[in-house]
């Protein structure tokens, strides 16, 4: 006789909310798992009426997408939650932001009105600050990288050491002067599986572009969303917002 899960009432979700948040400053050193725990606790503190899964260990229903790697900052992380009572997105934004530690900042919450957020996260715009190098050096390295037809990098995966080609994922890029921080590369990277990480772009800049090694670079994801013309990255929540606007016309 197998043990049956306790008979708790499983309340179905009535609404899904899509959340954009930022990972800033020292909090960029938090991992995705760290964020998951922090979010679950913050949702409870903010008293968001979460929907839970059934079973022995009920879990709140949260869908995560494309988390930025540990050590990278981000202005554009996305997560979707399901709730059992209707919520006001603006109130969720304020309460959840208050409940999360400073540095994990909730930027936007919209009600999900369209299918499949993840499919709209086609590309990311990254800013990679490289300390101690001149903009001209970084620009030359970037040119060398874009001139290459393939950019193999090695990565330790669950299946063992694998070689990945970065080149197809790298779209447009531009170099700016970052003042005391050195030089900065802003680059659009296609969200592919497995994801290309900014530190791997740096490896390519060093190996192929002969960029000198120095202090670790600092990467920030500026945007994530649908890929537009010339490597522009759009707002993945725009479709939900538009749908809301249609359904609830301004009075």
């Amino acid at each position: 006789m197998a043990r049956r899960p306790p008979e708790r009432e499983v309340v179905p979700p009535v609404q899904r909310l899509r959340i954009r948040y930022a990972k800033r400053g020292p909090l960029r050193f938090s991992s995705h798992r760290d964020f998951q725990r922090a979010l679950e606790r913050a949702l409870r503190r903010a008293r968001v009426p979460m929907a839970y899964s059934a079973g022995f260990s009920p879990h709140p229903r949260i869908s995560y997408a494309n988390a930025a790697p540990t050590g990278a900052a981000s202005e554009a992380e996305y997560v979707e939650i399901a709730v059992v009572r209707r919520c006001d997105p603006a109130a969720v934004r304020a309460e959840l932001d208050e409940a999360l530690p400073p540095g994990l900042d909730v930027l936007d919450v919209v009600e999900a009105r369209t299918p499949d957020l993840v499919a709209r996260l086609e590309a990311s715009r990254w800013r990679i600050e490289v300390p101690g190098v001149a903009p001209t050096q970084l620009a030359a390295a970037w040119s060398a990288v874009t001139a290459a037809s393939t950019l193999p990098v090695e990565r330790m995966m669950k299946q063992g050491l694998r070689t990945l080609d970065l080149r197809p994922a790298l779209l447009t890029g531009s170099v700016t002067d970052a003042g005391a921080l050195g030089a900065a590369l802003e680059v659009t990277i296609r969200n592919v599986t497995p994801t290309v990480r900014p530190d791997e772009v740096l490896v390519a800049l060093r190996e192929v572009g002969a960029l000198p090694t120095g202090d670790p670079a600092r990467a920030t994801r500026l945007a994530q969303g649908p890929l537009g013309a010339q490597g522009a990255v759009g707002d993945p929540l725009a479709a939900d917002r538009a749908a809301v606007a249609v359904q609830v016309p301004a009075s």
Partner: peptide, 23 residues
């Protein structure tokens, strides 16, 4: 000394344990 620490945190395992900022 966070400015000094910040430069080495990308090089260590589980850097989050050194940043503080607990709720």
């Amino acid at each position: 000394v966070f400015d000094l620490l910040e430069r080495v945190l990308p090089l260590v395992s589980k850097p989050v344990q050194y940043i503080g900022g607990e709720l």
